[in-house]
Simulated scan of single mutants.
Amino acid sequence: MANYLETYAAELDLPVRLNAEVEALTRSNDRYVLETGSNRLTATNVIIATGPFQHPSIPEFAEELDSSITQLHSSDYQCPDRLPAGAALVVGAGNSGAEIAVELACADRSTWLSGRGTGHIPSRVFNSRPFWWLADSVFTVDTWLGRKVKKRSQGHGDPLIRLTPADIRQRGVERVPRTEGVTGGKPRLEDGHIFDVDAVVWATGFRPEFGWIDLLGLAFDANGYPIHEKGVIDEEPGLYFLGLSFQRTPVSATIGGVSSDARYIASRLTDAD
């Protein structure tokens, strides 16, 4: 995939600027202004394609854990050897949490996986053409069924794909309820059980970070995501988003599903011209 993107940029001679973090996005008259350190770029159209995984989300009560407990977010996890020996609690039962928990259990650690079940889509189904056709053509924000699926998916982890609930149990991982707080410096579950563990891995997802955008016409919802119509910001002509979770379909934030959203944004750019 990396090779493809590199070749694509080279063959089309695209003016790619690497290691250029955009620190601010504002507007001056009819042009958008992007500040990148010492550089200043202006554009009529801007597509923000920063994806859904921006800032690790960790519960505030994590700060109350005893300092003797090693804790890290799933995005910083590398392998069992990077954690201290002993029992581990993985908080968040989606794909990342389940896979980390299984790896820790296979390394002969007592491991608990905390969180609600997210369901399971068999990999043979997920990788099938009918699934991707349904995801891209039926379960969209344009249909009643798609809007219902989107509403149900908000606030929940993605369904398990590579692992099944049975796989998790067979590898020695014990499923436990959600972690809701801390008591005596130790994690506390919603059923009141308190765990004495040596490490906690927060597989609790990510939250958006758009504080660098300062545009009067751009509004955000209660979860911090931009309010848009299939990635288009009507109140800010020329501003678009790409790769948001369920931007248009349940696979909008995946490599396999972002292409149709990109085509839609490209068509709107053409219309704008």
Rank of each mutant, 00 (worst) to 15 (best):
Q247M: 12
V33Q: 15
Q247Y: 04
H73T: 02
G37K: 10
L269Y: 02
A101D: 04
W202N: 07
H156S: 11
Y32M: 06
V16P: 08
D30C: 03
P52D: 04
G119L: 10
V173D: 03
S153D: 11
N29M: 08
D191E: 09
R171C: 12
W112L: 13
D108I: 09
T249W: 15
T50W: 15
V258W: 00
V197A: 07
E236I: 03
D271A: 12
G211A: 07
L145D: 11
E209N: 14
F195D: 08
D234S: 12
E63D: 09
G86Y: 08
L34W: 15
G92W: 01
V200S: 04
L215D: 02
F126C: 01
R207Y: 02
R268C: 04
L134G: 10
L216A: 12
A199R: 03
E64F: 11
S153I: 09
D234V: 04
Y8R: 12
L242G: 05
T111K: 05
A266T: 08
P208I: 08
P250E: 00
V102C: 09
K230S: 13
A20D: 13
N127T: 07
G157T: 00
F241S: 04
E174K: 02
A272W: 06
D167E: 09
K150T: 13
E174W: 01
P56V: 05
A266L: 12
G117C: 03
T254F: 15
P130W: 15
D158T: 10
E174R: 05
W202K: 05
L189F: 03
R116H: 14
L189V: 03
M1I: 13
P177L: 13
I265F: 06
V173Q: 02
L34I: 11
S260Q: 14
W132F: 15
Y77T: 10
G243S: 06
F53I: 10
K230D: 14
E64S: 11
D271V: 11
D234E: 15
A222W: 09
T118N: 09
R178A: 11
R248C: 12
A43M: 09
S259Q: 14
A20L: 06
D271N: 12
Y4V: 13
Y77I: 10
T270M: 12
R162L: 14
A166L: 10
F131M: 05
K148V: 11
N223Y: 12
G94S: 13
V33K: 14
G97A: 03
A101T: 00
V201R: 08
D221G: 07
Y240P: 02
V251S: 13
E11P: 02
K150S: 14
K230I: 09
L14A: 12
A93C: 01
L239V: 02
T204Y: 11
F126Y: 15
R188K: 13
S67Q: 14
A199L: 02
V33N: 11
A222F: 06
L242H: 08
P250C: 00
P80Y: 05
S252F: 15
A253W: 02
L104D: 05
V149G: 04
P159V: 06
V197N: 08
F220S: 02
W132C: 05
A49Q: 09
E190K: 08
P250T: 00
I265E: 08
H120G: 05
R169L: 13
T164F: 00
A253M: 09
